[in-house]
Design a protein around this nucleic acid. Structure first.
Lengths: 178, 178
DNA sequence: ATACGATTTTGACCTAAGTCAAAGTACACC
DNA sequence: GGTGTACTTTGACTTAGGTCAAAATCGTAT
């Protein structure tokens, strides 16, 4: 995907990835727990989100088919997570243990390079999100999703999509009819 | 700092870092240019910021004495930068070339580990910033700076501090007198 | 088919923070 | 030591989006 693994390496990597099936709405990581797993979503959809003081959900990241990710801040620090990981649909995924992940990181240089790419992309993604939050209106953020990620509009409920855009569901409903 | 370099490695690294002195208000990276340098600020202060559609400045990151950083998104992608790097005070710093940086990343495993730590921290920092932007009021964000980074309030102008908090100067002025 | 809980939409109203303008203050430079 | 330029404060007003509540629609288990 981001790195050139040889056959032997791929073999080792796939040994560390354990298949897992979860049903819609199940929680893969609870608030306050330490994130121990890194995911590759095969089919389905999971998301990470956190709650504000009023219990409003704020979606940080959505992983559809063939995407990777986790609650990265807790995964990195191995401290209790603010973020929750939830299955949005019935989902088949592969999970790698934190200790196996960091073992690969030590032992396999290509994996370290792979992880570096992930971090670079994750950083750039977050940075762009901040730019959008502080410079664009709700409508402009919606239009960007519409253009760049229409699949989100098809596959996510308005409630989740609104929380991803950091607007209220009512506002999203009004934007859509404009 | 984040990694255990041996003497020989430190020697190689310091060869790549070139000293540089810049005066207050000078621009180290213009909007639209590719970011070619990574900085270690010895004394002084630099910041990265970008402009919204109305020309309002939005400060992303501030580097005071002994802190490191750059316009990371452009440095990673080697594409034109949205972010500008500006000296806030007269500043003495060390600069490493992008190609030298990535040469070290290839050739020195400890450097790769060091860069990985930087990315992990940069990611977590951005993530926390998003959490604060979407869950806290202007006052709450100001109070956190006051508590966790009072040096920012001492060393940054209200204009810069306001843009860092993503509020208007007028709002910051009103918050301070509360 | 029916009925229940989930979502989504619509309407009326509210509020935090932005905007614009003007006055006050600091401070660098001649 | 005065004066021009930049910074900060204050005041009056506006606005994007939030809030709350009720109606409409959808989905799915019986």
């Amino acid at each position: 995907m981001f790195a050139d693994f040889d056959e032997q390496e791929l073999d080792k990597i796939s040994n560390y990835f354990k298949p897992k099936s979860v049903t819609k709405s199940s929680i893969l990581l609870h608030e306050g727990s330490v994130c121990k797993e890194f995911y590759f979503v095969h089919t389905g959809c999971i998301r990470t989100f956190f709650l504000d003081k009023n219990g409003q959900e704020k979606t940080r990241y959505v992983m559809l088919d063939n995407h990777i990710g986790t609650a990265l801040t807790s995964f990195i620090s191995q401290k209790p997570s603010i973020e929750i990981i939830e299955a949005i649909d019935d989902t088949d995924l592969l999970a790698m243990n934190h200790s196996d992940f960091y073992r690969l990181n030590k032992e396999m240089n290509n994996w370290q390079t792979f992880y570096q790419r992930i971090l670079e992309m994750a950083y750039s993604f977050q940075n762009r999100k901040i730019e959008h939050l502080v410079t664009l209106t709700a409508k402009q953020r919606y239009d960007i999703i519409l253009k760049e990620n229409p699949v989100f509009i098809q596959r996510l409920s308005n409630r989740v999509l609104a929380s991803y855009l950091d607007i209220r569901e009512e506002t999203l409903s009004r934007l859509k009819s404009k």
